[in-house]
Every structure is written in C-alpha cells, then in structure tokens.
Design a protein around this nucleic acid. Structure first.
Lengths: 196, 196
DNA sequence: CTGCGGCGAGAACGAACGTTCTCTTCGGTA
DNA sequence: TACCGAAGAGAACGTTCGTTCTCGCCGCAG
C-alpha cells in the first residue's frame, strides 16, 4: 500500500483528483476526498501540491496534454484523406461522449466554476481551446480549406461537446460531423483533379 | 431603502443573485453576499427563498425566460428574409459577447459547477438548451432548410458562446455567422424562383 | 543501545458558509 | 396608553473545508 516513489504517488494523486474534479466539480471536492481516493496521506498530498490551487492547475495541465494527445493519436490512426482526418475528430468525440463518465469539457466546466475568480484556471482553459483551434486549423488547411473553415470546424466541435454534456446524448457528434462534411465539401471538390 | 412590496423585493434579490452567480460562479457566492448586494435582510431573503438551492433554481428559471425572450425579440426586430433572421441570431450573440460582464452561458457554467451533484441544475440546463434548439430549428425550417440544418446552427451558436467566453473575444460570433450562412446557402438557393 | 529525523494517521485550527435565533424597534389597534 | 405581531440588524450555531500540528512508530547513524 506504500505507493512507491514520488512520481508514482503523483500519478495516483492526479488520477484520483481528475476523476473527482471532473465528475463532481472542483469546489465540491475537498482535499480529504482526494486523499482518501488516492490512498495517500494528507501530509504527502501537501508535500506534492502545496495548495489545492496547485493541484487544480496540475490536474488541468495534465488533462490538456493527454486529451489532445489522444485526439491526435485517434486522428492519426484513422488515416484516409485529409478531409477524412478532419471528420475523424468527430468520430473520436462520438466515442468520448458515449463514455459513462463523460461530463463535458473539463476546461469549460472549470472555467464556469472558477474562471471568474481564478485567473490561472481561465488561462488554462484559454490555452486548451487555443491549442485545439490550432490543431483543427492545421487539419483543415491540409484538407484544402481555409483557416476560416478551421474555425468553423472548431465551433462545431465545441458546440458538440457542450450539447452532448448537457443533453446527456452523444448525437451532437454525428450532427457536427455532418455539418463539418458540408463545410469541407467545396474545398474537397476543388482539390479534385478538374473533371471537365 | 425599504424596497416596497414582495414582488419588488423578489426582483431586487434575483437581480443581485443573477449578477453575483453569473459573474463569480454559484458556489463562490454566499447568501450573505446576495443579502448585502440586494440590500435586503437575511430574514426576508429566506422568507422568499427558503434555501440557496431554491434561489439558484429561481435564478436559472428567470434567466432562461428572459434570455430567450431577448433573443426572439432581437430576431423579430431584425426582419428580412427567413435566412436573414437566422443570421440575426449571431448578430445578437455578437453584441452579447461584447458586453463587459459576459462570461459565457449561465446554464453551461451552472452545469459544469453543479450538474454532477444537483439534478435540478442539470435539468434546467437541459431545458434551456432544448428550448434554444427548438427555436433555432423553427427559424431554420422557415428559411427552407431541414431540421438537421437547424441542429447544425445550434451547434455553431453553442460553440460560439463557449469559445467567446473562454477566449474573451467576441469574434466567434462572426465566424459562426459565416459558417451558418454557408450551411444555409443551398436551401436559400433552392428556395429562389428557378432562374433557368 | 540511544537518539534522531521522517512518516502515517488523524486530531486540531481558523475561516467561511448556510441557516436559525435573539434582541430591539416600530406601526397599528383597542 | 398598552399590547401584539412583524421585521431590521446582526449574532450565533453547526458544518465543512483548506491547512497545519501532534503523537506515536520505525529505520538508521553513532
């Protein structure tokens, strides 16, 4: 039950904190809940993260990195044409929405809860969304569309995440995917070798 | 400083609660802050709203009604073709995003903060988004497009609200407006009298 | 063996919060 | 005037939370 070296304990704590913060909201979860869920003593917890604010920051930082890595990996695995890779984003969202613990975007949730009072949280959310937008813009431009179309794709993805969370159904992913396909269609057509 | 009859006091309290809950988050605002901001005694506050939960519910209910009424009024004022009326939604969002106290969708924020533990809050958010979706579907069908296109419009609006909040800039409204115009274009064209 | 530094377990502390209670004042009525 | 219910002002209560402190135990240097 010891937990091993420091980085292993860090992972244990962050795993527990992530599940609790994401599932119940940050303010609704006390440090004691993180402690008992991670099986770590309170003393150790505060040695690793000197305050709850720093634990929250670490939670958001790690989640940002992992979420975007997983998205990129799924897109890479999907292969196909550049436009197919854009659409694969929405297939990945669909699978995410169907997960039993899905509760929307952790950054939007944290922003709504703490963005008005905690600037680091607001900054983390802004950074996450900006990075996502950049990633989608890259994919979209590769598909022969403009960066503006990339923004449109980002809007669809964002709306799908929020509406799937609030409605509790994964269907916004498919709806957004169809809209993205329509927005990409002109670029895909003009990228084809001219047929006449 | 008395405040007058009961419904006037209710309005005072709800005005103060709305500004505080929306601006700082619900859990970050204590009943005492609502009391001092509304200039009402704690006794009166609890006579009107027997618990904080009921105050939160009343806040969300009133905000839902007023927000959707204001949107519908702005769309009605905009006039023009049916497609123009759909686009007027995004013009209205643009103005909202530029307001100094704009901090995203109150229902999404409340959902992120309390949706995991308070079912009434989750239900209020679901109801709000469903009503908005229904309204946009109506507008979109009037413009000659399908209900599926209405869902696409709703996704764009939702994404615009979230991204404007997190980024702090109103530009997502214009971006979403342009995407909506593109999605509506086929319907608008086919609705024109055939030109050849 | 003898200290000593570190650690697990959880008590303790100070602040904040939701909610209720007390005390006092005051307006209306017989 | 004497009384009663309502209400303003804010203290008080019980709980929760973030954070720190205490105590007892164990491994190790001399």
């Amino acid at each position: 039950m010891d937990g091993g070296d420091e980085t292993a304990i860090r992972t244990q704590v962050l795993d527990a904190a992530e599940e609790l913060f994401y599932g119940r909201g940050i303010q609704a979860v006390g440090m004691d809940a993180v402690r008992s869920a991670s099986g770590v003593t309170l003393r150790r917890l505060y040695q690793l993260f000197p305050s709850k604010g720093e634990l929250v920051e670490a939670y958001l930082l790690r989640r940002d990195r992992r979420w975007r890595e997983e998205l990129a990996a799924a897109v890479d695995r999907a292969g196909g044409s550049a436009a197919d890779r854009v659409l694969a984003v929405f297939d990945w969202l669909d699978r995410w929405f169907a997960a039993p613990d899905f509760r929307g975007c952790a950054f939007v949730n944290a922003f709504g809860e703490l963005g008005g009072t905690a600037p680091e949280v607001a900054a983390a959310a802004r950074h996450h969304k900006d990075a996502l937008r950049g990633y989608l813009a890259g994919l979209t431009v590769e598909a022969g569309a403009t960066a503006a179309t990339g923004d449109h794709i980002a809007l669809l993805a964002e709306g799908a995440i929020t509406l799937a969370a609030v409605s509790g159904a994964p269907s916004p992913a498919r709806s957004a995917r169809e809209a993205a396909r329509l927005l990409l269609a002109p670029a895909v057509e003009s990228a084809r070798p001219p047929s006449g």
